[in-house]
Every structure is written in structure tokens, then in C-alpha cells.
């Protein structure tokens, strides 16, 4: 099915724009057209289908599922639910407070918040179709593992004292139940609106990501990364993580960049470490989380994740070579 997008890009690049196959410009344009059409198509269709069947979990439901579970089960469940529950980052503060208010441990809450930006259904399908299912499976395992381990350590270090004091004083009202239209028409409209909203929210990240990917793909020589960031350079992984820290993109937007880096033979571990660093740690997210977390905890959070990304990078490079 994905061959259609390649054919479309072939036609647009070589027939419509009459670019000569094999040139740098043609390579970049082809990459851009193929990825833009494929990613937007998949994004829209997946969000529409999920919303139509109401298989998108509401954070309110997640809270009910996790509430009262043992800690061990809580970390794994929270990290997995973080991967399948879409929410806008502007909701992370009420969500964080809502979880703690229900008596869910801080570490379990953080497991949810760590995994959430790393994984979602859309990203999994697009990753699988673009860079293969083996790497996607690794990425899923890493994303959930980071949430579980991060949550566990946060509880072990009793970091509750680094949550802003006012958070503990908030008492929530009864969870608001809003009635929903279950008719076919109601479901379709809801699904359409959700898909449109998702595209509006992430289109810029995707276009920038594909643009960067296309530029790398077409214009950076294959030997460049092999020379400076090959598997034999131990500094490549920490460097990739450092570069990714200040950058921010939605996970869907970073996939085309990863695709281009992999096509230049950059090792898998280095690419995954870079992707994680871009999506899971970002200045805007930290500004939002600062409302509920004290600076010490944000610093811990960033340090823990950065070190974890470097270790994951080394581990995968060692295992997959």
C-alpha cells in the first residue's frame, strides 16, 4: 500500500517537475513529496479511525484504571497508558494534579508523563512503515522502559518534596462527565474534528522535520556521518543527545529526520538517542512542568533522561552491530 506514495513521488519529481533522477535536488524533492503525502495521510486516517471507535483513552479514564493499583503494576500500566493516551501538552498540569489527587504515587504519574511524548499510535504506525517494524519494536520497548525506570527511581528518592506545595492542597471536584453523541453521524463528526485538530497541532513540526530530512537526504554526503559520527566514535551518542536537548519536535515530525539519518548509515542507537532527546526533553514542556515541579526535580528529570538516552544509544549500538 505504501508503494503508492513512492509512485506518486516518482511521478511528481521526474514527470511533473522534470528533475533528473540521481541529482541532489531530485533526491531531496522526492523524499519531501513521498514523506509529506505518506505522513499526513497516515496521521489523518489513524486519528480518524481511533476517534471514530472512541478507542482514544481519555485521561480521566486512565486515572480510574491506575488508581489503587500496586506500585509495581502501576509503573508499567501508567507507562503503557501514556503511550496510547493522546493529550495536548497544555493539559499536562491538570493531568498531573488530577493523578496525584487520586492518590496515584508521584513516580507512577511521572511514568505516564515520561512515556506520553515518546510514543503514540500514530508514531508507531508511521515509524513502522518508514523505518521498519524491528526498529519500531525497539523504540516501543525503550519508551515504556524509560517511563517505568524513571518512575521507580523518582519514588525511591522520595521526590514528593520537590512538587510545588500548592499542588497537594488542591481538592478536585467530581470528575465532569460530558455526554457524547453515539450516533454514526455524531461519531463521524467527532472523529473528523479530532483528526483536523491533530493535523493543525502538528503540521508545522512535520513539515520542518521532513524539510530537514529531505535536506540531509539530498545534500549531506553519505560519508559525512560515517566519518564524524560512526559507531567507533564514542562521543557521537552523547553529542546526539546534547544536540537534541534544546530542539523540540512532535514525535511524528522527528521520524523523517531519523529516516534520513539512518539512510546515511548513522548507527541505530545514535539515531534513537537523538530522537528521544528531541521529543522527550524540551524547553516548552519544562516551562509547563515548572508550574508543578520545583527546579531541583526538573533538573533531576532532565539529567536522568539525558543519561538514560546516552546509555540506550550505547546499548543499542553494541547490540545491533
Amino acid at each position: 500500500m505504501f508503494a503508492y506514495f513512492t509512485q506518486l513521488a516518482d511521478w511528481a519529481t521526474y514527470d511533473l517537475l522534470v528533475l533528473e533522477a540521481g541529482t541532489k535536488l531530485a533526491d531531496a524533492v522526492h523524499f519531501f513529496i513521498e514523506d509529506t503525502t505518506k505522513i499526513f495521510f497516515l496521521l489523518f486516517v489513524i486519528v480518524f479511525v481511533m476517534a471514530f471507535f472512541r478507542s482514544m483513552l481519555a485521561p480521566e479514564k486512565v486515572r480510574t484504571y491506575i488508581e489503587g493499583k500496586s506500585r509495581g503494576a502501576g509503573y508499567v500500566l501508567a507507562a503503557m497508558l501514556g503511550a496510547v493516551t493522546p493529550f495536548c501538552s497544555c493539559s499536562s498540569v491538570p493531568l498531573f494534579i488530577g493523578f496525584l489527587e487520586a492518590g496515584i504515587p508521584l513516580g507512577v504519574t511521572m511514568a505516564f508523563l515520561i512515556t506520553s511524548p515518546i510514543l503514540n499510535q500514530v508514531a508507531v504506525v508511521i515509524l513502522g512503515s518508514i523505518i521498519g517494524w524491528q526498529m519500531t519494536a525497539i523504540f516501543i520497548a525503550v519508551g515504556i522502559g524509560l517511563g517505568v525506570i524513571g518512575g521507580f527511581i523518582i519514588d525511591r528518592l522520595h521526590m514528593e518534596r520537590y512538587v510545588e506545595d500548592y499542588v497537594w492542597k488542591i481538592r478536585m471536584g467530581e470528575i465532569a462527565q460530558v455526554e457524547i453523541d453515539e450516533s454514526l453521524r455524531g461519531r463521524s463528526r467527532y472523529a473528523w474534528d479530532q483528526a483536523v485538530e491533530m493535523v493543525q497541532r502538528v503540521w508545522l513540526y512535520i513539515i520542518v522535520g521532513i524539510g530537514v530530512g529531505a535536506g540531509l537526504h539530498g545534500y549531506v554526503p553519505a560519508t559525512f556521518f560515517a566519518e564524524y559520527a560512526g559507531a567507533d566514535n564514542p562521543l557521537a551518542v552523547p553529542f546526539a543527545v546534547l544536540v537534541g536537548l534544546p530542539l523540540y519536535s512532535n514525535i511524528t515530525g522527528i521520524i523523517p529526520v531519523a529516516e534520513a539519518l539512518l539512510s546515511k548509515s548513522l548507527p541505530v542507537g545514535t539515531v534513537i538517542a537523538f530522537m528521544l532527546s528531541v521529543v522527550a526533553i524540551s524547553p516548552p514542556e519544562f516551562i509547563i512542568l515548572r508550574k508543578v515541579l520545583k527546579p531541583q526535580m526538573l533538573l533531576f528529570f532532565a539529567t536522568f533522561l539525558s543519561i538514560a538516552f546516552v546509555l540506550v544509544g550505547y546499548l543499542l549500538n553494541a547490540l545491533l552491530l
Partner: peptide
């Protein structure tokens, strides 16, 4: 104000309260 928002039982924003009653939560209403 977060305390007020949570007081209405809203976890997914934006939420809408009409005449003191929650009528919507999570996303832009249709």
C-alpha cells in the same frame, strides 16, 4: 487558576462551565 479548574473536576482542558455547571471538557467544542 489551577485550583479552580480542578475544583470543577476538569482534567482535560479547555473546559467550559455554563451558569456554574460543566458542559464540556477536553478540546474546542463543536
Amino acid at each position: 487558576d489551577m485550583a479552580t479548574i480542578m475544583g470543577f473536576g476538569i482534567m482535560s482542558t479547555p473546559g467550559v462551565v455554563m451558569d456554574g455547571k460543566v458542559v464540556h471538557a477536553g478540546g474546542i467544542p463543536q
